[in-house]
Design a protein around this nucleic acid. Structure first.
Lengths: 132, 132
DNA sequence: CCTTGACCTTACAGTTACTGGAAGCTTTAT
DNA sequence: ATAAAGCTTCCAGTAACTGTAAGGTCAAGG
């Protein structure tokens, strides 16, 4: 099938599929006219990557997951470790964002938000004290 | 003062300070030898940006905040709106990350994580069902 | 047969916010 | 005098695409 059909079936934009080819993720055959020709297996792999990316795995991790996927000898422990690490990264990011939110909330709470120029948010940004 | 002193005082790497000059954030004077020469006010602005960046504001938002900061006529409402929008963005991101985490946790929970190749995580990635 | 429009190709630039490195001045210290 | 530290500019690389331009190919309609 041509790239637009592969795009439809995998849930990825054609542009992204070409990019994935550039970086060596899925290399389709070529038809006589030079068009890319995708097999069902190609599309399956693309959809796999699409799902893994949407779960927050990086491209490099996706490559690893794909290689594990196509390796009959893999240990599920390898995959699980990757997933648990990813969960830890996500937790870390959530902690950071909560801390940011709390700081910004405190700043906003003290700001009148009116037409007057007096603004504690800017004052905090300008000072070096950390209103945490 | 030279750039390394400005770096020390602002908490930003010299490299970043030069980059900020390129994109028009702080333009220092130049000494006779071509070295950048930072005033206390320059450093103050750099520190302001450093703090705003660490709170999750984009460079564009930092420019806006800086211009509001140096505008005596600003309304604190303008700044507060920016902060509240940022808080909303952070909340959205936290929601997304929590959802990702929950999906990954479910997948991991069902994975033995042993030396056998049987792996529900990979199976889920390969299928199109969404184990949410 | 010709044209139109949809679809395909490659290649290059742009995005965000820096970071690293090379090549080459200037200043400072020994 | 020389070496180290600090400064300069410029170019490339990061992550993961996205946009755009210029042009080849294919199927349908007149």
């Amino acid at each position: 099938m041509n790239i637009s059909e592969a795009a439809k079936q995998s849930g990825l934009p054609s542009k992204t599929i070409r990019y994935y080819e550039d970086i060596g993720i899925v290399k389709p055959d070529r038809a006589g006219n030079g068009y890319r020709s995708y097999s069902d297996n190609d599309v399956h792999q693309l959809a796999f990557v699409q799902r893994a990316r949407s779960l927050g795995f990086t491209i490099e991790e996706c490559k690893l997951l794909l290689s594990l996927y196509s390796n009959d000898q893999r240990a599920s422990a390898d995959v699980k470790l990757l997933a648990l690490n990813k969960i830890e990264q996500i937790d870390q990011k959530i902690r950071e964002l909560k801390s940011l939110k709390s700081t910004l909330s405190n700043l906003s709470k003290n700001c009148h938000g009116d037409q007057k120029p007096d603004c504690p948010i800017l004052e905090d940004l300008a000072s070096h004290r950390n209103l945490k």
